[in-house]
Amino acid sequence: MQEGAADPGLYDFSPYRGRKAFAWPGGKKVAVWVSPNLEYYEIDPPTNPHRKSWAKPHPDVVGYAHRDHANRVGHWRMAEVMSKHGFPGSVSLSVALCQHHPDVVADANARGWEFFSHGIYNTRYSYGMDERQERAIIEDSIRTVREATGQTIRGWLAPALTHTPRTLDLIAEYGLDYTCDLYHDDQPQRVKTASGDLISMPYSLEVNDHYGFFIYNMSPREYARTLIRQFERLADEPSGTVMCIPLHSYLIGQPHRIGAFEEVLRHIAADGRAWITRSGDIADAWRAVQTGEAA
């Protein structure tokens, strides 16, 4: 990005109107990807001078235990429902989960899920890091996920959405080819970086379960109706688009929410217009569309 400039220079302006319509593989309209955030929050993390971690003095029992529910109960419940309806995950991973709870990571890998990095812990923020430090967490992420799963990460969602002006240039330099940190589009778009080939993968804050339940204060059934409306609208539009469903299993995996969510997956799977897939597959298909148009 252009550090200090009023326009950070992340991408070119490209209005929705006038874009050439395209379809996803199989003639599908909406590439639907589910993104479980498999996270580890430390009980007593060190302090980052730019952002506080827990609201309470450590231990923040409610905050910690709530997130712990994900790894003990929520993940397993959510993953079963996803597999039952044929939805793979594209995991936003706190890579230290590979050390703390390797069972969770192995389960996701065995289900054919893709992994990208969400930092080391969701309680260690990038704010204030120098370049050497930021390279260290990228290299740690690549190494840790490769050793734990055999996969080479392609994507990045900044830990707790904390960025530096150099993050996108660095991940592109390391060969990562998509970022989930930009929210300007319903289709992948090219991102301007110093080197490499980076695209923005539409993730979502607006239909993220965290926003649904804690920003918009939706009931479980209201959130489910929201996801279905999101899908229906995108599927009715002329061109291929992307719908991401970002999840936290300590939220969606609660017993009062998972049943309503299962109905969403059942609805989308039965509709016929969804390409139910993973983030890396969407990146490949979108690049193929661009190449085809250039040819």
Partner: peptide, 22 residues
């Protein structure tokens, strides 16, 4: 020290209770 992880290990980063998966 912000990039050191002394409790990055199997199980929790505390000893209050053990991990258990459903």
């Amino acid at each position: 020290a912000y990039l050191e992880y002394p409790r990055r290990r199997l199980g929790y980063d505390h000893d209050l209770y053990p991990y258990s998966a459903m």
